[in-house]
Design a protein around this nucleic acid. Structure first.
Length: 370
DNA sequence: ATGTCC
């Protein structure tokens, strides 16, 4: 019999108010993960919702690497750009058509050049400059209100919010090691070193992917794009006190992070202060799911009028999503209210609103399908 | 999440 004590579960800090829409199953998952071996601290944010291997909308500090807490889309994140395109020059129909170039991906030569000399080079150019599916999008937005903390943004400015990740590459890293990761990878092990290297490559690849998509979109719209921030939310960070896992929780970039809304709620740019240590240097990345994909098919009738209604937003914007299943799964009603998420974050001193942004064109896919 | 399990 060993004399090592049974480890107590990690402390769980929940950064949401009593009024927040949080499924019990997501909180159960948060507490389950807190009991995993080597877990040191757990933080849950107001966009928390259930996920496949653990909750989405949380940060987890452990003495080892748990790849399932990052999931397949390693390096996924959101980058916000300011466009030097005057609002009055924008014609929505024309712009929506022009954004169809986002289906093309980056040409092979350009893709190789973009990867050359970076950590991402070993993964190769396949899929670079493509958005992918699920909750990914490239959205043209117009700035509504700004606080004095907003970096160079004024009401009426056009912005681009790009949400995508490492496409097939992160998924390949993850599924390639499935079954071996359940107990986590201890530091110094070959598995940990190998994962950390591939993770780093996928994260770099995802960042380049967002930059190339923004470049393609701004070229198509005949303007230039200036990066405001690029905040990843599915990744691993080596810290002095352990491995920090973020799953649907943003790592602010230059003290800023986008908070994605939906077709029914505004998006925000958040100013992110140092905040309490218990928040693990993390903040929400979006509104968070209210209903899972399967549930949405039971909630929305698959009729022309309903589908057409989802192709427009309450802000006068339009949604380019020719795939009907995806349109239903990603309806605004599938998500919580991003404004409520932001108010919770503000209440805990985790963020302040720097700007609000209304969707004009949400580009998901112009290719049809179910 | 995924050049995706029929």
């Amino acid at each position: 019999m060993g004399n090592s004590p049974i480890a107590a579960p990690a402390r769980v800090c929940e950064f949401y108010s009593g009024g927040a829409w949080i499924e019990g199953r997501a909180v159960d998952q948060l507490n389950e993960v807190a009991g995993w071996p080597g877990m040191g601290a757990v933080a849950g944010f107001p966009d928390l919702h259930p996920g496949r291997h653990g909750p989405v909308g949380g940060a987890f500090l452990a003495d080892r690497i748990y790849p399932q807490l990052i999931g397949p889309d390693i390096g996924c994140g959101m980058a916000l750009y300011r466009l030097d395109l005057p609002r009055r020059k924008l014609k929505l129909d024309k712009a929506a058509r022009r954004l169809e170039v986002l289906e093309d991906g980056t040409a092979a030569e350009e893709a190789r050049a973009a990867l050359a000399g970076t950590e991402a080079e070993l993964l190769g150019p396949q899929g670079l400059g493509t958005l992918g599916g699920g909750n990914h999008f490239c959205e043209l937005q117009v700035v509504q209100e700004v606080a004095d903390t907003a970096p160079g943004l004024a009401p009426g400015d056009l912005c681009l919010l790009v949400h995508t990740g490492s496409r097939g590459h992160g998924a390949g890293v993850f599924t390639g090691i499935e079954d071996s990761w359940k107990a986590g990878f201890l530091p110094g092990s070959e598995a940990a070193d190998s994962y950390a290297a591939l993770h780093g490559a996928a994260q770099a690849w995802a960042r380049i992917n967002r930059a190339l998509l923004a470049q393609a979109a701004s070229e198509a719209l005949r303007c230039s794009a200036e990066l405001i921030c690029d905040a990843p939310h599915n990744h691993l960070e080596a810290r002095p006190d352990g491995w920090l896992h973020r799953k649907g929780a943003a790592a602010p970039d230059r003290r800023l992070a986008p908070l994605a809304g939906s077709r029914e709620s505004l998006s925000y740019l958040m100013a992110v202060p140092e905040g309490p240590a218990e928040a693990l240097g993390s903040v929400s990345h979006g509104a968070g799911r209210r209903y899972d994909r399967a549930a949405m098919h039971g909630r929305i009738r698959r009729v022309k009028s309903e589908l057409e209604a989802m192709r427009q937003t309450r802000f006068g914007g339009r949604v380019i999503c020719a795939a009907r299943d995806l349109l239903i799964e990603e309806a605004g009603s599938a998500y919580k209210d991003a404004g409520a998420v932001l108010r919770d974050l503000e209440g805990f001193g985790l963020a302040r609103e720097a700007a609000s942004l209304a969707p004009l064109i949400t580009f998901k896919t112009s290719k049809g399908g179910r």
